[in-house]
């Protein structure tokens, strides 16, 4: 069955001018990807890669210089307010809340700002308070809540809007492991039961690996990968090896490895290396053979998504340096 596209990001580009130096900075260039109904998509990238610019363009908070965003077929730039009927967001985490209002007052206020009558949203608010385990805190000021609870409330506020698409910027930032797990489970439940589409921007790779089906990775303002998380892990897993050596590598060998394999780690006669091409294994063997280094064991390493992300970013960084110097 063909998946229904709910978000279309097409060729987004945005230039900024630095205030002091007047230098033009390319924030994003030709960012293109789609998001499908009932999917949790991870939007990843290092700091300054262009994630926030992309997110702001998706919410209509920033006008792109080129390209467009369509949410459920509505062009965000042309009909921003209409598009906002289909998307809600948590952009600043717990800062998105009024700290001098209680939990329930926050929910009521944001519902009111979406045109809902206070009386009509009470059942939905009660349901969300139960779902997010905040019922016992409903009359407490947000300022007195823990960071994890504030984060849960911020997500509940976004869910209260009952939109098809929910955008969460760093939903687990600065919260403890237990609450992070709770939020992950809640998000999975919401997608499963309510068929919502969630876009998550995060630096927390275990969260991305656990939650997201697919990731779009942005670096230097461009999409470098748009692939399923499992596929990325498989791709890198087959190329990552751990070699236990009988003796230490000499300097020349290390230099050769460093030059040819940008992603490697060496300590205590253990060499972990990621091979990029099929022929690389033979080249590695040649390097080891050149000093008659004994290989005691070769293991295929299990790789997690954090390593995949680092591999992709450092590979792209190398290409970026080469293309910039040319």
């Amino acid at each position: 069955m063909e998946q229904k596209r709910v978000v279309q990001v097409n060729g987004l580009s945005k230039l900024y001018q630095k205030r002091k130096t007047k230098e033009i900075v390319k924030a994003i260039e030709g960012v293109t990807f789609d998001v499908y109904e009932g999917e949790i998509l991870g939007l990843l990238g290092p700091n300054g890669a262009g994630k926030t610019t992309t997110i702001k363009c998706m919410c209509g908070l920033l006008k792109p210089d080129e390209g467009s965003v369509q949410i459920k077929g509505t062009n965000v730039e042309k009909s921003r307010l209409k598009a906002l009927n289909h998307i809600s967001a948590v952009l600043e985490g717990n800062r998105n809340l009024y700290w001098r209002l209680t939990v329930r007052e926050n929910l009521e206020y944001f519902a009111g700002n979406r045109g809902a009558r206070r009386k009509d949203v009470q059942t939905r608010i009660d349901h969300l308070l139960d779902q997010f385990n905040l019922k016992h805190k409903e009359n407490e000021l947000v300022s007195s809540l823990s960071r994890g609870m504030q984060q849960k409330l911020a997500i509940a506020v976004a869910l209260l809007a009952n939109t098809e698409v929910i955008l969460l910027d760093e939903p687990t930032l600065g919260i403890d492991v237990e609450t992070g797990y709770e939020i992950r489970e809640l998000l999975k439940e919401i997608v499963k039961k309510e068929n919502k589409t969630i876009i998550i921007s995060s630096h927390d790779m275990p969260v991305v690996q656990d939650l997201c089906e697919r990731t779009v990775i942005i670096n230097h303002g461009k999409v470098i990968t748009n692939e399923k998380v499992d596929n990325l892990i498989d791709l890198f897993e087959t190329k990552a090896y751990c070699l236990s050596l009988g003796e230490e590598l000499n300097e020349k060998q290390l230099q050769q490895i460093e030059t040819h394999f940008p992603i490697y780690e060496y300590s205590n006669q253990k060499l972990e290396v990621t091979l990029e091409n099929d022929g690389d294994i033979y080249y590695l063997m040649d390097i080891l053979k050149s000093a008659s280094t004994i290989i005691e064991k070769i293991d295929r390493t299990t790789i997690d998504f954090e390593q995949v992300f680092m591999n992709l970013i450092s590979r792209e960084e190398n290409e970026y340096v080469v293309s910039s110097s040319n």
Binding site: C59, L61, L81, L84, A89, L91, N96, L97, N113, G115
Partner: peptide
């Protein structure tokens, strides 16, 4: 940090 949230209102 609430201004952006206000900008998410369809009104």
């Amino acid at each position: 940090g609430t201004l952006e949230q206000l900008y998410m209102s369809p009104y």
